[in-house]
Amino acid sequence: MLKLSILDQSPVSSGFTHSEALQQTIALAQLADRLGYTRFWVSEHHNSAGLAGSSPEVFLSTLAARTNRIRLGSGGVLLPHYSAYKVAENFRMLEALYPGRIDLGIGRAPGGTPHTAKALRGVGADLFEGLERFPAQVTDLLRFLTDSVEPGHVFEGIRATPLVASMPQVWLLGSTGQSGVYASQAGAAFCFAHFINGAGGQHAVRSYRSSFQPSALNVVPQATVCIYVLCAETTAEAEELATSIDLRILQMEKGEFTGVKSPKEAAEYTYSDWDQTRVRDNRSRMIVGSPSLVREQILLLAESYGVDEVMIVAGGYLAETRMRTVELLAEAFELSHQHSYVI
């Protein structure tokens, strides 16, 4: 059976606050936990009016305390901004508190503007130098997580605390093949962000599998794909609600990082010819429709990627719309029959 998981970016819809968006994410995680989803990830974005999640490692502690069995993770920690050692300690702490439930997803995107990146790293920091250091940072992070700092290394004798018997599952996230290369070299799991880049993901995952190097993290490659999904009782209803996602993606492409607009606001928006072309093209990053149609499209997507798990970004203006997508998919894939857990 195909496994389903969720990435939630804590979107801030127009007319709502950041605090309300975070509470909506908590409610969505609790629902996913009850319905049998495999994992629930939260993202990291900075200086964004439209996305409330800036600190996944802090948020995960709250989510873990309010759920029972679902795996929880970062989608993902933007490693170039931080010390690999501190990231290892943060996630060892989460693993110590909630053993067997923590995923450490890492990415190399800035998660904001270059100006914001300077605020995160320090005024004199070089953004491009941080990206170039990413492979070395990944290696250091894995050294700390697996207690495998070599004798004579500059970090010899340093261990990430707390000292725990288990470790979080490590994922590398990306929307290009390069992230898959890093994941295969590290022996980490790989998640392709189809919701960011609707082309080339299948090739990236195939390349990741073919060049995968077994490690202390994974003996065999593990991959998943993440895509926008909006599901409603009918395809016509889903299409109307999906206009909010269409406009949000378009506005992000144009550098307009405002909140999610309502379907009414989307209908009133003035679209240029270029805008309309982008909206049509961006549908490759989304699956929209009735439960039967969405189920069919998700299965085809999984088959094309060769994966046994698909992660969704539930889209829509209202939290109720996103929660209904999650409910309808759980019914369509009979997720409750795949898991046994205590509520």
Rank of each mutant, 00 (worst) to 15 (best):
Q23W: 04
R108Q: 06
K264C: 14
K261N: 05
G15Y: 01
I245P: 00
E150T: 14
Y37T: 09
L2I: 15
L141M: 09
N47C: 09
E129T: 06
A96D: 10
P99T: 09
V42I: 13
P162E: 12
R324N: 12
Q23P: 01
E20F: 08
S179V: 01
A236Y: 13
D103K: 13
A109D: 06
E327Q: 15
S48A: 07
Y341T: 03
V220G: 04
T17D: 01
L127G: 01
G187P: 02
G306M: 00
E150Q: 11
A21W: 09
L79A: 11
E334V: 02
T113C: 01
P214M: 12
P162G: 15
L230E: 02
A109R: 01
D33M: 10
P11H: 01
G111W: 08
V123Y: 01
V12S: 00
L104S: 14
A332W: 01
S175H: 07
S14H: 11
M311S: 14
I312F: 12
S210M: 11
R295C: 07
R209P: 03
L31E: 11
L163R: 13
Y269F: 15
I227V: 12
A188C: 14
F144M: 09
A314P: 12
S148I: 06
V42K: 08
Q338L: 14
E331L: 03
I106P: 07
R133W: 09
A109N: 09
A314D: 04
H337E: 14
E296G: 03
T243Y: 07
S10V: 01
R159A: 08
Q24V: 07
A238T: 11
R280L: 11
G177Y: 03
V138R: 06
L247F: 11
L301K: 00
P135Q: 13
H115M: 12
N90S: 13
A64V: 07
R121A: 00
Q251N: 13
R206D: 07
L4M: 08
E237R: 09
A319T: 02
R121L: 00
E44M: 15
S54V: 05
Y317D: 03
A330W: 07
P135C: 13
A109V: 08
S83R: 00
G100P: 09
L301W: 00
V229M: 04
E233T: 06
D103H: 14
V260K: 01
P263Y: 06
I102R: 06
I102Q: 04
A88M: 11
G76Q: 08
R280D: 09
E150N: 07
A188Y: 06
K118C: 00
Q251M: 15
Q24E: 15
P80W: 04
V181F: 10
V42R: 07
V342F: 14
V279L: 11
L127V: 08
E20P: 02
N218A: 12
H339R: 12
W171P: 06
S215Y: 02
Q251Y: 03
H337F: 02
A119G: 03
S210P: 00
F128P: 02
G130E: 05
I6S: 05
V294P: 13
D103N: 10
V170L: 05
P162K: 09
A188F: 04
Q9P: 03
N218S: 04
Q30C: 08
V288S: 00
A188N: 05
A109G: 10
L301A: 02
A84M: 04
